[in-house]
């Protein structure tokens, strides 16, 4: 089990004459993922979701806050002692084209981590090749076909499966899938999502799914939780189906409204929200972070920052950070209904 508490991260950008400009990427994010659970982080580019994923995978460190893996807080450990813990969290990169070394065959790519794993667990050498074939079969590709090949000989979908198989070599507890399907043909995305779902059920691997496409979050499986990130803050959090079907935060509603409508199959939801401006990090930090783009913002939103929680005046299943929560019908409806 992995939990994060009050994770913050600020990037310093070089900004001309006046020296550095600070860009907060994460402003106190809490999350928890159970064994075999699924957590989705949703937001547009620049919302901090990728940074969060990298921190969870141990590829970056946070400025403050705590990551706890299996009851062990990471902040007290030296980088060397942290490594075995973060090895239990494997990253699946967005781009299956750059995630595999073009000069190495799939066999070589899988063999290196498996050899390491064999040493760690005291397994004999023959286990390595057997395990490579087993893992490829698990992710749904023919080992005989794939093993001797180079990445350029495989399709995008196959490469992403190989990447997942490589992540599984370390017997991870959780996978961080950062936009894991966005560079794959739409026609094959559901296959990868179904695979992640199956890994949850079969192996009890937790999945942290990071995406800008909120629709894909539905396919990660039951009992998943959705966190909507906006400029480094969680603005809405709850069970995935609830957040998608009954969103209360205007930002969540904008994200959902932006999902294309398949005319002929669907018709647009009646309450679609279009955010007024593009995301600009230079927007001030006073008040609600979304206020500048929110069509519903009031004076209070410009002044105070709402915190994530339940609103006693407007009870919902999910937590949200909005002064004016209201359920809106923004997702497309079936065309006939």
């Amino acid at each position: 089990m992995i939990t994060g508490t009050a994770i913050t991260k600020t990037f310093r950008q070089r900004g001309g004459v006046l020296g550095h400009r600070e860009v907060p990427a994460l402003r106190g994010v809490d999350f928890a993922i159970e064994r075999g659970g699924a957590v989705c982080f949703i937001g547009e580019s620049g919302c901090g979701k990728t940074t969060l994923g990298r921190i969870i995978a141990g590829l970056e460190t946070c400025d403050s806050g705590e990551i706890v893996i299996d009851g062990t807080p990471m902040s007290g450990l030296s980088p060397r002692r942290r490594r075995p813990y973060f090895r239990r969290v494997q990253m699946i990169h967005q781009d299956p084209y750059s995630a595999l070394n073009p000069t190495r065959t799939i066999h070589q790519t899988l063999r290196a981590p498996l050899a390491l794993r064999a040493r760690q667990t005291g397994r004999p050498k023959p286990w390595i090749d057997a395990r490579a074939e087993e893992l490829l079969a698990l992710v749904g590709i023919d080992p005989g076909y794939v093993l001797p090949r180079y990445p350029h000989q495989l399709s995008g979908g196959m490469r992403q499966r190989v990447v997942i198989a490589r992540a599984l070599t370390m017997d991870p507890e959780a996978l961080v899938a950062d936009e894991a399907v966005s560079m794959i043909d739409v026609s094959l995305r559901l296959g990868i999502l179904a695979l992640l779902r199956r890994l949850r059920e079969q192996l009890g691997v937790g999945v942290l799914f990071i995406t800008h496409d909120i629709a894909t979050a539905r396919y990660i499986g039951d009992e998943s939780e959705l966190y909507v990130l906006y400029r480094g803050q969680v603005v809405e959090h709850g069970p995935t189906e609830t957040v998608i079907n009954e969103p209360v935060h205007p930002y969540t509603q904008s994200l959902l409204s932006a999902t294309p409508v398949l005319h002929g199959l669907e018709r647009p939801g009646p309450d679609r929200i279009v955010p007024t401006e593009a995301l600009d990090e230079r927007h001030g930090d006073a008040g609600c972070l979304f206020a500048r783009r929110c069509p519903l913002a009031t004076e209070r939103c410009e002044r105070d920052r709402p915190v994530l929680g339940h609103d006693p005046a407007y009870p919902t299943t999910q937590r949200h950070a909005c002064f004016h929560p209201r359920r809106r019908q923004v997702i497309p409806l079936a065309a006939g209904a």
């Binding site: 090895r87 990253m91 070394n101 000069t103 190495r104 981590p113 992540a167 070599t169």
Partner: peptide, 28 residues
């Protein structure tokens, strides 16, 4: 900065492997 080097680090592969087997062939 490429994905496969980052992945190798995430898997905890030794630095000698990363430099000798992942980086060097790409620069061959």
């Amino acid at each position: 900065e490429r994905g496969f080097i980052e992945a190798a680090r995430g898997l905890g592969l030794p630095t000698t492997h990363i430099i000798g087997r992942e980086l060097l062939p790409s620069m061959a």
